[in-house]
Structures are given as C-alpha cells and as structure tokens.
Lab assay of single mutants.
Amino acid sequence: MAAAAAAGAGPEMVRGQVFDVGPRYTNLSYIGEGAYGMVCSAYDNVNKVRVAIKKISPFEHQTYCQRTLREIKILLRFRHENIIGINDIIRAPTIEQMKDVYIVQDLMETDLYKLLKTQHLSNDHICYFLYQILRGLKYIHSANVLHRDLKPSNLLLNTTCDLKICDFGLARVADPDHDHTGFLTEYVATRWYRAPEIMLNSKGYTKSIDIWSVGCILAEMLSNRPIFPGKHYLDQLNHILGILGSPSQEDLNCIINLKARNYLLSLPHKNKVPWNRLFPNADSKALDLLDKMLTFNPHKRIEVEQALAHPYLEQYYDPSDEPIAEAPFKFDMELDDLPKEKLKELIFEETARFQPGYRS
C-alpha cells in the first residue's frame, strides 16, 4: 500500500510507478496490472468513496492506442447498470505532455475469474450472474457493438453480487458484411471463450460470437473449470467437437473457408456428449439454455433477447427493466489503419471533457 500523499506533496508512487492523480484522489492501494497499465484503488475526496484507477501508458504502440481509444469512446457513450462506466479521466493539459491516461471507475471487490478459483456457486448465484451478463449484453448488442472478449476476468463483482462487464478494448461495431482481413492475426481474445466460426472463417462476425462466450462462462460457473481449455488453435476446435459432436452437413455448409471445411470433413465422426453427463448436478433449465448458447452453427445460436426470456431466468426476466441503447454506435473511421500519432490526438480530444474549465 502506498503511503497517503500529504496535501501538495506531488504524485504518489505505487510499486515504483508514478500515479499522478492528486489532489482529488489519494490513499492509493495496488490492485493489479494488465498488459499496459496498473490498477489501484484510491480515495475520492470529492465523492467520499474509494474508486478504481487504471493507469494506461499506450502511446508507444499502435495496438494499445487503438484499444484505449475504443474503450474510452464506447464506455463514455454507454450507460447501463451492468456495464462499468467511466467516472473521470485524468491526463496532462497538453498533448505533448500526455504520456499516461488515468481512467477512474467504480471500485468492484472482485471478478468472476477470482471468485470461481475459490468458491463453488449455488444455482441461485449462477442464475443471477447469468441474468446480469445477458442484461448488459442486450444493451451492448442493441448499440450494434460486439464485445468480443467476454470471459470471467472481464466480469466485475461486488459483495452485493452486482455484476458489471468491463474491458471493451477489443470491441467492434457489428459488421457481418465487412471482410476484416487479418482478423485472426489481430484477434487476441482469450482462445477458450472463442466461437468456432472465428477459427473457421475470417469473413465478418456477428453478435452470436458473444453468446458463445457467455455459454462458455455459464459452463464454467457450473463446474469451476473452463469447458474448452484448448492449448492452441486446432486443439481448441477438437475440444469443442469432442463435446458438441461432429457438425451436420448443414452446419458445414455455413463454413465459407474450404480449407477449414475440408479439415472438419477429414475428422472421424464424434457423438455429442449429453450435458447432464458433463454437469450431473446442474439445473435442467440451465443445461437447456447452455445447449442453445453453445450451438456450433452461429445462425442457430440463441440471441440475447431470447436467452433473457428463457425459463431458467424467469424469476428475473423483465423486458421493461432491460434497457437498450438510445442509438446504434458508430465509429467515424476504422481505427485499425491509423498511425499511433493520430490515435493519440483522438484520445486527447475524447478525454477533453474531463479537463478543468472544459467548454463543449
């Protein structure tokens, strides 16, 4: 834990890192770190609560700039109880001085990944967590956004079992017609939660990839272990087919990539493993919904509104309290091709509203 900075004593240090967030945020305490930044909790002297502050230093890398800009653009436009918001952003007053960006968010005690390492969940908890994931996802999908990296560590939890989806750095506007060349190379989302079509096709992607990830998360809540822990690309596919069985001819016809289709045709026939054999203690309604989410063919996979209306979630289902976005989200430009200098300018502009004396 960093010592509390005395008023006016300059930035606090946390594990050798400068955290320049005073005077409003003090009493910093280390939480963890990701690929390009550290997260601390801090005391907000204005709202009198502890908050989470993520320090991001992305400006050396085009990919990190892209992810940072995506996350900020999306989260500043989203407003939903099951999606983490941005409360404040701290950065230098000029673009030349801006080396880091500090993002202030609600402090959540833990995440689903940490929880599943230590606790076996009751059916009631599984049901409530799944409902909140789908409630947040309904809003995301209504904005025409794909999260693309749903996994237990991106689901934040607090002691009252509130759940918030975080990390929109890989999110995209849904565009089933656009052929994202190089899709697989830039697709760094965790393999275990990846839909089979991501490994088999490169053309376009749809909201059904997020539903697949939610199915993987439900299976993990039922058993405290990942359902498809593939060691590499082909191993991942083999794990999936080992449980779902061989795809039907109709399902194979959806695979545009001939090499991928021929690979699947070359494999020995596998039978589907019954879900109640894998999860003998699970609620039968939970397994019915799991089956509809972990469907090989993305066109037959359940959609988020149908999933919310499934009998497993009937005690929570309330369409009048499951809000959607006001308007579909649009990125003005494809960020993939922009140089990091341009992305830095866009991050600077996007964060201006939090600067003292800002006038829109």
Rank of each mutant, 00 (worst) to 15 (best):
D291E: 13
D336V: 14
I84Y: 02
V214T: 11
A171L: 10
K203F: 08
L112I: 05
E186W: 01
M108Q: 05
Y358T: 11
D111Y: 15
L116H: 06
R191E: 08
A2Y: 04
L218R: 04
Q132V: 06
E96V: 12
D321T: 02
D336H: 02
T160C: 13
V51Y: 04
A171E: 07
G85N: 03
K114V: 13
I83E: 00
A7K: 02
L75Y: 00
C161G: 02
G22K: 10
K138N: 15
M221V: 05
P268V: 03
D235F: 08
N271K: 12
L264G: 05
Q355F: 00
K48I: 11
Q62T: 07
K330M: 15
E326N: 01
I72A: 01
H125N: 15
P152F: 02
D149G: 09
L218S: 14
Y36M: 06
T351W: 03
A171P: 08
T181W: 11
R135P: 02
Q355H: 12
N87T: 02
A42D: 00
M221I: 15
T351Y: 00
E197V: 14
F348P: 02
K330P: 02
T190Y: 05
Y25L: 12
L343V: 01
E60M: 11
E220Q: 09
Y64T: 08
V18Q: 11
T160K: 13
P226E: 09
I256C: 13
K270R: 12
I165G: 08
E197K: 14
Q17I: 12
Y233P: 05
R24V: 09
G34A: 09
E334N: 11
F329R: 06
Y36P: 05
P58L: 10
K117D: 09
K300R: 14
H299P: 07
G182N: 10
K259W: 02
D167F: 02
L116M: 12
P176C: 11
D291C: 11
A6W: 10
D210G: 02
N154F: 07
Q315T: 07
A219K: 12
E186Q: 04
I89P: 02
I165M: 04
W212T: 09
R225Q: 02
L265G: 03
D167V: 15
A174Y: 04
K330V: 02
N82C: 14
T206A: 09
Q355Y: 00
A9M: 01
G32R: 03
K48N: 15
Y317A: 07
N82L: 13
M333C: 03
N27G: 12
M13I: 15
I126R: 11
V104G: 08
L290F: 02
P196E: 13
K207D: 10
R79F: 11
A35K: 12
R91C: 10
G204I: 11
A195T: 10
T94R: 13
I209P: 08
R77D: 03
I103W: 07
G34T: 02
K99Q: 11
D321Q: 09
L294H: 04
Y317H: 06
L264P: 13
L107Y: 10
Y187C: 11
V145F: 06
K138I: 15
N224C: 10
Y316K: 07
N297W: 06
G357Y: 00
E60Y: 00
Y317F: 15
P226L: 11
P328T: 15
K99L: 00
A327N: 00
A35W: 05
F329K: 04
L335E: 11
R91G: 01
Y113F: 14
N45V: 07
Y263T: 06
G85C: 15
F348N: 07
L278V: 03
A6C: 03
D283Y: 15
Q97L: 15
P311G: 04
I89L: 05
I255C: 13
S246C: 14
R67M: 15
F296H: 07
I126N: 10
I347P: 04
F129L: 15
P274E: 12
G32D: 12
L346V: 09
R24T: 01
W275C: 15
D149Y: 15
F228K: 00
V104C: 02
S122N: 13
S213A: 08
I240S: 03
D318P: 00
Y131R: 04
L184S: 13
D321C: 06
K292C: 09
R15H: 09
T68H: 00
N276Y: 14
L200D: 12
K285M: 07
Y25H: 09
A9F: 01
L146F: 01
E96S: 04
A219G: 11
L244F: 04
K138E: 14
F168V: 02
K73I: 15
A143R: 13
I209C: 13
L313K: 04
T206G: 08
N158G: 12
K272R: 12
Y43L: 10
R135A: 03
D288I: 06
I56K: 06
I211P: 10
R172D: 07
P176H: 08
R172S: 07
V101L: 15
L335T: 10
Q315R: 07
L150Q: 14
L146N: 04
P226T: 14
P176R: 12
E345Y: 00
G230I: 00
L343Q: 15
D149K: 06
A52I: 11
S202M: 10
I133M: 06
W212K: 07
Y317G: 02
A42K: 01
I83C: 02
Q306R: 08
D111A: 15
G32F: 03
A92Y: 00
K272V: 07
R172L: 15
A4F: 00
L75W: 01
E12Y: 07
T185R: 12
S246E: 00
C254V: 04
A174F: 03
M108E: 08
Y187V: 08
I86R: 03
R359L: 09
P152W: 10
I240G: 02
I86W: 08
S142R: 05
I140R: 10
S248L: 10
G22T: 08
D149F: 03
I211W: 13
A7D: 12
F78T: 05
Q306N: 00
I72N: 14
G182W: 15
M108P: 07
I209Y: 11
D88I: 00
Y113T: 05
L289A: 06
E109F: 04
I240D: 02
V104K: 09
K73P: 12
F329P: 00
A325W: 03
I240L: 09
R172G: 12
T26W: 11
D332I: 03
A4T: 11
H141P: 13
G16F: 03
W212D: 10
I53T: 00
G245Y: 03
S213W: 03
I72S: 11
E60C: 02
H61N: 10
Y263R: 10
R50T: 01
L313S: 07
R91E: 05
A5H: 05
Q355R: 06
C254D: 08
D288G: 03
D167S: 02
L338D: 05
D177E: 14
C216R: 10
K340F: 06
N281A: 02
E33Y: 01
N276I: 15
G22W: 02
R15E: 05
H80Y: 09
G34L: 04
R172T: 06
G22E: 13
P274V: 05
I56A: 11
F331P: 00
N45F: 04
P196A: 08
T351K: 06
I217V: 08
S266G: 15
V46D: 15
S213N: 13
N271G: 02
L289V: 03
L156W: 07
A195Y: 01
G16V: 14
N158D: 13
D106V: 11
M199L: 15
E71G: 00
F354D: 14
L218A: 13
Q132W: 01
D210T: 06
P229I: 05
P23R: 01
K203P: 11
E326C: 05
S246D: 00
S284Q: 09
R191V: 09
E197S: 10
L218M: 15
I90E: 01
M221L: 15
V145R: 05
V304E: 06
Q66V: 11
N45M: 01
D288W: 04
L222P: 10
L150D: 07
I324A: 02
I89A: 06
W275I: 10
A327E: 07
L156K: 07
L287H: 08
V214R: 05
N158R: 12
L343Y: 10
